[in-house]
Design a binder for these strands. Structure first.
Lengths: 113, 113
DNA sequence: ACAGACAAGTTTGCAATGCAAACCTATTTG
DNA sequence: CAAATAGGTTTGCATTGCAAACTTGTCTGT
């Protein structure tokens, strides 16, 4: 018989994307052309510090690009997902889909409490 | 306004289950009545140490039960998923399913090159 | 003009984590 | 008896995620 399941796939998930905070960031970015730091802070609910460090990691990994400029006299940081980022997210999504499939649907043999 | 999507769900994912190694463990356990430590070590590919510590956390969280006994003269550790574990896994699975749905299918605007 | 509040991020400090190497105890084999 | 194996646990370490504190600059009230 086949392995207990193909769930070993789960170990192949991209950890950079797997982290919820970063997945959230990527998910927002993938639906917009460009996103401001402040906006992201609001919709994500992440603290500035937390957001900043995740941003740094995503940038270091090449999944996003960060453009710094000024709006009037104030600093403005904008984030944009890269092609690599889209790919990573798509791959991750596919991995997730597999995991979801392999995980037993509770509806079947689950306990009705 | 409503959030860009319901992806904020991702932040609600149970971190205890979210960790790939533990998800793998739970996925194996949910399909079997009882599983031996050694077997799990093999199918998961985790080192004994790593497995042992994840096992400890799952047990501490009440998602699994660990039964220690002897087979002949040798120690034997068996793992079993609890009702809470099944529930946590089912909830997690549902969360994942939502995330997968909300994540854009790559087929649309995927590769330009 | 200046004190204080606010904006926009970055840096720092810390606790928690994941991982494997080393270790431990007991058994089996050469 | 020595060495290898089985079955796990503990230790040590490097990485992380998180928020508090800090930085730099603008704006408001008086």
């Amino acid at each position: 018989m086949s392995a207990p399941s193909r769930i070993g796939e789960v170990m192949a998930l991209d950890r950079l994307v797997h982290e919820p905070a970063r997945l959230l960031i990527l998910a927002v970015l993938v639906n917009a052309k460009e996103v401001e730091f402040g906006f992201l802070e609001q919709v994500s609910g992440l603290s500035k510090g937390n957001l900043s460090s995740h941003m740094g990691k995503l940038e270091a990994g090449g999944l996003i690009e960060v453009k710094k400029s000024f709006r009037g006299k104030r600093p403005l940081t904008e984030l944009r997902i890269t092609a690599a980022g889209r790919k990573a997210l798509a791959d991750y999504r596919q991995g997730l889909a597999m995991v979801v499939q392999e995980l037993p649907a509770p509806s079947v043999a689950a306990k009705r409490k």
